[in-house]
Design a protein around this nucleic acid. Sequence first.
DNA 1: TCAGCCAATTTGATTGATCAAATGGCCGAT
DNA 2: ATCGGCCATTTGATCAATCAAATTGGCTGA
Lengths: 355, 355
Amino acid sequence: MSGEVPLGAVPRPTVSSVALLAGVSRQTVSNALNNPERLQPATLKKVLDTIEETGYVRSAAARQMRTARSGVIAYRLDRVRDGIGGAVLDTFLHALSAEAERRDYRVMLYTADSDEAELRQFSRLTRARTVDAFILIETHRDDVRYGWLSEHGIPFSVFGRPWSSDGTNHQHSLNHAWIDVDGAAGTAQATRHLLELGHREIAFVGWPHGSETGDERRRGWAETLARAGTDAPRRQSLDSWQPDGILSGSNAARRLLDAGATAFVCASDSLAIGAYSAVQAAGGQGAVVGFDDTPTAAALGLSSVRQPLDEAVGWALGSVFAQLDGAPGVPGEPSLLTPQLVVRASSRPVRGTTA
Amino acid sequence: MSGEVPLGAVPRPTVSSVALLAGVSRQTVSNALNNPERLQPATLKKVLDTIEETGYVRSAAARQMRTARSGVIAYRLDRVRDGIGGAVLDTFLHALSAEAERRDYRVMLYTADSDEAELRQFSRLTRARTVDAFILIETHRDDVRYGWLSEHGIPFSVFGRPWSSDGTNHQHSLNHAWIDVDGAAGTAQATRHLLELGHREIAFVGWPHGSETGDERRRGWAETLARAGTDAPRRQSLDSWQPDGILSGSNAARRLLDAGATAFVCASDSLAIGAYSAVQAAGGQGAVVGFDDTPTAAALGLSSVRQPLDEAVGWALGSVFAQLDGAPGVPGEPSLLTPQLVVRASSRPVRGTTA
DNA sequence: TCAGCCAATTTGATTGATCAAATGGCCGAT
DNA sequence: ATCGGCCATTTGATCAATCAAATTGGCTGA
């Protein structure tokens, strides 16, 4: 009979029980944790020591009652779609959780199948004061979420720029806090890198038109090639539109290799992995650069454009905390972060690759 | 000046304000939500209507104060490792979050780089009464987490069986609530399926020895082959050990094809994707079955063994709630769930495949 | 007729922390 | 000697709900 449940054996320490032990009042204990500068060094030490001894931790609920802060940020967890591409959001979420902890906050998940369902979640979570703010992802046209949260005065910040209904990325009428990664800058960087390696016939393996993110990544490649002197018809013949996926990528790359391509800029690592395998099957001549720098890409030695997710998370949280601290609705200037190309074996100069 | 922040414009409805409006007392409002059977139908309706009108939602914090329940379950979010394999835990987490919501609970994330760090998180989260219970994953040898939580009387439940230090899966001295998927049953099912298709030279593409999960999956294949009459030396020659990954998978499959294999049971979808591409490169003759039924596998038409994650989540939550409701430390019999083979193009009978 | 009982509803107390205001001690200035 | 002012600390009130005990009123049966 040694494994008895010690539930409630010792009543959980409270601000009062700690105060009693330390020989001070409740408020002094509270101050030791919240406003240490108000206490005399000796008193502070005494109280902190007692806190240490008893293992006292403030009750989240009681604290929240008085301060009207839950210390929790909500994040919508989507159903898994694509195993590889999903890694980006996984990484984002991990960074978010870790960074939130560093700032004494926590991340709580919710799910929603539609915008309406998500608004219902907003409503529940905020009315119950379960969370203080939201971090939104997966922006889309006519996104009703910003409006709802703004109207209700709930702090939030978005990873992804607001796309207005005509597909341009004009500012939304409600200007809210958002951060995004400059996809065009990423593919442009990749394309320049391949140009420097001596490649001239640089193809793009991208998604079908209509995806904002995808179109933007294509643009970075196209503009860079244009600047390097590749004419429009030639660019057209080096472009391709594929649903995301490894197989799509290798099929497209095979065709483009036949058309004379010697290097590939891809809209995702999935496509790039496929393209890389096609290149290797064809003798290994040809360079490939992916997008997102997923662990899989790293493992395969695939060059890839890395999104600065830690920065994005830092900015998003910073913005949300500023709003919580009463900053006006106007967020610190939203901006595009520049991604960074990570060069690996798939795009290193090999013998005979020079122009 | 239309976009003013309406913060606090109307004071948030409380149990008292709703009571006033409905012409009843606070407690009656509380009962309407928590013990509706105690109220007269007419009173109940009146109160519920008022709640609806005002959009009242109970304050999570105040509720938690009195009930000593946070309504939150904690889950450790790991850093992303493998883009494809990670999808399993992603799916698990999504299912967990969705199912928790259905039961009026929420999932909160925490991170930890080591067991010690995780124990510290346990301590903080439980002392602050931020969470009610934990769902643990990634079990390993000499896992100290069960012990800590048991000693502290914190409800928890584990996805993954307890591995004792000698590598067997003997019961831990502290018997706790766990659920796991019978990997051997999965690979056995896959192997039988391939036998039925007429294959006789069925290879296994698995991980190096030492991973419990991996060894178990190998066992299911080996035992089924043995039962079908394949002798040990032959089995040995059809076995392979690979670090997880697409490339590893295709390399191994190429070698095994040369050794006469006509079908492949794989320890993961990553390996299977690689094996499948090797098979296709070699003319498309040969069947492949993966493990985990990731979205990528589905997209590629790869047969795969699907883990019943929804069931696992349901069981884990059920167990945790039972513990919260004061059930003794003894959990409902822990068990192994049987995975289900999903047959797709990669292992369908094609002309000429029959023995 | 009225005690007794039951069901429906109300009142009082409590949860654990923090805010706001009050207290006590000590200093220098009047 | 006395008083305003300052500092460190304490006391009282409050956040929004629920538990536990008290109340109300209707109905039954001796």
